[in-house]
Amino acid sequence: MTTLTDDTLPVTPRAMRDEMIVFVVMALLLASVPFTGVYPFFVMQALCFALLACAFNLLIGYGGLLSFGHAMFMGTAGYCSAHALKVWALPPELGILVGIAAAFALSLITGFISIRRQGIYFSMITLALSQLLYFIYLQAPFTHGEDGIQGIPQGHMFGIFDLTKPTVLYYVVLVGFLAGFLLIFRIINSPFGEVLKAIRENEPRAISLGYRTDQYKFLAFVLSGTLAGFAGALKVFVAQNASLTDVHWSMSGEVVLMTLVGGLGTIFGPVVGAFVIIAMQQYLAGFGQWVTVIQGSIFVICVLTFRRGVVGEIAHYFRRSL
C-alpha cells in the first residue's frame, strides 16, 4: 500500500552485522573529531539534530506516521532542562532527566490525541499541537518569551566531567547520541519494530492478525517523542540557551527535511541528513533568507527525484538495509 520506503528486506544476521560495522565506523569517525580540527560546536549541534531526526524517523520510517510537530518535544525538553539547570541549579544529569521526563509527559498527552487520526490528518494535528505549545511558551513566564532562557550553566556531569571544557562536552554529547541511536537501532530490530513495519505496510492486515495497532503506534509515538526530548536536553548544553526557535514549526520542518535528505526509513539516513543540513546552514549563513529558499528547493527536488534519500539510494544500490 505505502510507497514511503522500500526497506522490506528481511532482518538477517548478515544484515545486522553489516549495520553494526557501519555503526562502529560511524562511532569511531565521530570519536576522532576532536583530533581533526573540525569545529566541535558544529559537530555537537549536528549530533543533537541527528538524534532528533533519528527519533522522528522511528515514527515515520517504521510507523508510517509523519509528525509535523517534533520540534515541540525538543523545545519542551530544552525549556525544562534549562529551567532545572538555571533556576533549580540541578546537576547536568538531573537536568537532562527533567527534560526527558517533560518530553515523555508531553508525548503521552499529544500521542493520545493525535494517534486518533491517520495519514494527512495526523500530520496536521501534530503541527497544530506544536503551534498550540508555541503560543503557550510565548506567553508563559518561565520561558522568558522572545528572549528565551539565556546563559545556562553547564556544570559538572556526575560531579566529575567538567562540561565547560569543549572536548569533555563533546564526548558527553557523543555518548548521549550513540546511546540514543543504539536504543533506536534496538527498537527497530525488535519484535516490536517488526510489528510497526507490518502496520506501516498494511494496517488492516495487521489488525486482522490480532495486533492492536493503535497501541503499537502510541508506544512508537511516546518512544519517539521522549528520544526527541533527550536530543533537546543535550542541545541545551551545546547551545547554552533555550528559545522559541526550537518549538517553531520551521524547526519541525527542518527535522523532516533532514530525514528526507538522508533517507526515510533508513537507520543511518537521518544522521547523514542532519549533518548535510546543518553544514548547509553553516556555510550559507551569509545568504539570509535564501537559505529558506534553498531548503524549500531541496524538499521539492527530494520529493520529485530523490525519494530514497542519500542512504536509501546507497542501500538500494547494494541491496542492503542501512
Binding site: I120, V256, L260, G296, S297, I298
Partner: peptide, 10 residues
C-alpha cells in the same frame, strides 16, 4: 504534504 511545504518555503 512535503512537496507543497517545500513550495511554501521557496
Amino acid at each position: 504534504l512535503l512537496l507543497t511545504f517545500g513550495i511554501a518555503l521557496i
